[in-house]
Design a protein around this nucleic acid. Sequence first.
DNA 1: TTCGTACCTACCAAAACGGTAGGTAAATAG
DNA 2: CTATTTACCTACCGTTTTGGTAGGTACGAA
Lengths: 136, 136
Amino acid sequence: MMISTRGRYALRVIVDLAENSVDGYVPMREVAERQGLSLKYLERILPLLVSEHLVEGVHGKGGGYRLSKEPSKISVGEVLRITEGDIAPVACLENNAVKCEHINDCRTLPVWKGLNDRINEYLDSVSIADLMKDIH
Amino acid sequence: MMISTRGRYALRVIVDLAENSVDGYVPMREVAERQGLSLKYLERILPLLVSEHLVEGVHGKGGGYRLSKEPSKISVGEVLRITEGDIAPVACLENNAVKCEHINDCRTLPVWKGLNDRINEYLDSVSIADLMKDIH
DNA sequence: TTCGTACCTACCAAAACGGTAGGTAAATAG
DNA sequence: CTATTTACCTACCGTTTTGGTAGGTACGAA
């Protein structure tokens, strides 16, 4: 399996924020409760999203989190790359991969590159807005 | 990362067999040497491919392995599903996944299904013959 | 000053990963 | 019949990743 709970939970949090932060900030306690996830675990995931300017957090009463961009401007690929670190399907395509010596003669590399391209292409084509429930 | 060494090595072995078993059987010792992989580790992977009738092994001198089908009839997806067990990108799409209770109201499920479909579609579209070096 | 929030760091159990070790079973050559 | 060569089987094992928990501190509003 490629996408761990970190990425999956992050995505659910982002969609939850998109749907529930009508104007103000939403405390993570509420999101955790709504989504049935551990607050403590989410608290470890959110700083990643903050540092990459996907969400903003404010302290104190009335504080919480909100999205920094419109849901239509955030792609699923963006969220996953931030939280998973790397969504390459094989080790040799990871960012910090050790240079393979048979790279010019590898029979299997083309299929991994092809797979990687299709995965990223698709995940970048879906936005958070695409995942939101239409609220009439 | 989604595809572990098991699947990647299996694929390299299959392509190696396709290229090097002109008529007879190829001992895994030769393949391991050519590919720079641990023989002992490959010996643990190959029974999977045998039991699913992708390759055949014969004992004794002159023995080894050969493909059971033409390279053009074996897809990359087939090899990976056998060796990896499951190539689902997320836990909730795995074969023996626990039934999620929010399955009918999950905002993120559609994107995982879409991803899963594209991954399998692509891997099934590439055959071992596509990965072989043209030998003139 | 108190409360509610984000945010930080250390720790930890369980599973997966990537093998190694040490055999047995079967087929062939001599 | 014996030796050799191969496939095949099973148990073990160190390291890394996963999926958290525990216990705080920093900050901001009331």
